[in-house]
Design a protein around this nucleic acid. Structure first.
Length: 442
RNA sequence: GUGAAAGUAGCUCAGUCGGUUAGAGCACUGGAUUGUGGAUCCAGGGGUCGCGGGUUCGAAUCCCGUCUUUCACCCCA
């Protein structure tokens, strides 16, 4: 019986797995070189945990289950609540700074579409307990450091940065009542995605004050902080933004970012700097998003400690990397360092050893040096060893770097080592070969 | 949750005014006188035409349902 694949999931055959590892290994490596330590939690958590932050609607968008004791559980749709729980549990004993990263596998019961599946991987980095804008700069830098590392340039992507704090200050200056802020954020977040008229209509309905609406629209049309400052006066939050940009410039990623007050982030919990990264052609959904959140730990029963972080899924990133041709590189191809072929016509050696027994022994020896080695399993129809040509063909098909041939010269303790790319081959003593190999590994 | 399009071999597709045992290319497997590979040539395996029902003497082909995929909306932690 054929069982169909589950909606919105992927199978990772070796070729896809190589791509996934390329992405995930980069996430881990770049996190570590930026001073982040890896953590992880369980793949399911108590359902309530996800209701705290996001409310009941979220329950429809996650996979939930009951355990045998009747507890409501959910497969994690994000890892930030787990992070908050873990940090809160040991808040008094964790050494600071808390700079942690994770690459969790997440599930969301959403309708799959381009760049969005029901199961995916997400790189998360967070800095907890550092109020300084330098932490926000580090989060943005680490993110760009990765994207740059994997081959994306300032011509491919753009980091759009804004500040919830600045937004709140300006909107207060304009006269927007405190109670309308959260719903207004949701509308402003859509500005770039909606036609002008629809956007204006939504503002009208929300604010019911044409002067306020026109001020908001003017503000949203401004291009830099200086213009905003000129129109709405210097706000405390501006210093923060300016300092962030100075830090990013010093870090050498000045050409990657752009101020854009259209970046609001849908979520209510952001309180400071917010950012999103897009492909420059802006044809895909956001590659990642993040920002400062001051109340999350408190919401999960911990102290009021400020935090800043970022999340990046693998789906959109992979689409972009494929478009840019950054995933078709030779190292991604499967391969062997050595393939050991044996000559089938050779009669057993003096101590009754056969080419095959020498081959498997040699393979085991080479594997001790952590190199990829294999010996053919192939037999002819009559159960005979395959021809040498056949074995070399297999070695070529498996993208082997060097082939070792065991034949008559082994009576003198010699191996034939053939370079598959150049076709050149040498005779080397068995012991000398292994000694050289061990030497190279050190 | 809403709307639209699509589903034939592992992949890309051809085949339908309804008519015998459903095809191609690529991929895969085997072979081309067995101590030298990638090319080429030859041969082969593989499909209950997504699944279920209906119409019909007869369905890959027409109708209905369903599942999956893709795209857009909703949402985006």
């Amino acid at each position: 019986m054929k069982i169909p694949q589950v909606k919105g999931t992927r199978d990772f055959y070796p070729a896809e797995m190589a791509v996934r590892n390329r992405i995930v290994d980069g996430w881990k490596r770049v996190s570590q070189r930026n001073g982040f330590e890896e953590y992880d939690g369980p793949i399911f958590e108590r359902l309530e945990m996800y209701q705290i932050k996001s409310g009941d609607e979220i329950v429809d968008q996650l996979f939930s289950l009951k355990d045998r004791g009747g507890r409501n559980l959910a497969i994690r749709p994000e890892i930030t609540p787990t992070l908050a729980r873990m940090v809160n549990q040991r808040i008094n004993s964790l050494p600071r700074p808390i700079k942690w990263f994770s690459v969790p596998r997440l599930c969301r019961a959403e309708r799959p579409q381009k760049g969005r599946l029901r199961e995916f991987f997400q790189w998360n980095i967070d800095i907890i307990g550092v109020d300084d804008i330098r932490a926000d700069a580090d989060v943005i830098f680490t993110t760009v450091d990765y994207l740059r590392d994997i081959g994306l340039t300032a011509n491919d992507i753009v980091v759009k940065i804004s500040s919830r704090r600045m937004l709140a200050a300006v909107l207060k200056e304009i006269g927007v009542p405190q109670g309308s802020l959260d719903s207004l954020y949701a509308v402003l977040d859509k500005m770039n995605k909606l036609p002008d008229e629809t956007f204006e209509k939504m503002l009208d309905e929300l604010l019911r004050d044409s002067e306020m609406v026109s001020k908001v629209r003017t503000f949203m049309g401004l291009e830099n902080i200086q213009q905003i400052e000129g129109m709405f006066g210097r706000q405390e939050a501006f210093n923060e933004l300016v300092r962030l940009m100075e830090l990013l410039n010093s870090m050498g990623i000045g050409d990657y970012y752009r101020f854009d007050q259209g970046i609001v982030r849908g979520l209510a919990y952001y309180t400071g700097i917010v950012f999103e990264i897009y492909d420059k052609a802006s044809e895909l959904r956001a590659i990642c998003g993040g920002g400062r959140y001051d109340n999350l730990l408190k919401d999960f029963g911990g102290p009021a400690i400020s935090a800043t972080g970022m999340g990046m899924g693998d789906c959109v990133l992979e689409i972009l990397l494929k478009e840019k041709g950054l995933l078709d590189i030779p190292e991604l191809e499967k391969g062997l360092d050595y393939f050991i072929a044996r000559v089938p016509t050779v009669v057993p050696f003096e101590d009754h050893r056969t080419p095959l027994s020498v081959a498997v022994q040699l393979a085991a020896e080479i594997r001790k040096t952590d190199r990829r080695v294999d010996v053919s399993y192939r037999l002819t129809g009559s159960g005979e060893p395959p021809s040498l040509g056949r074995q070399l063909k297999e070695a070529a098909a498996r993208n082997t770097e060097k082939c070792i041939i065991i034949g008559d010269e082994f009576r003198e303790g010699k191996l034939v080592v053939k370079d598959m790319a150049s076709g050149e081959q040498d005779m080397v003593g068995y012991d000398v070969f292994l000694t050289d190999l061990a030497g190279e590994s050190e």
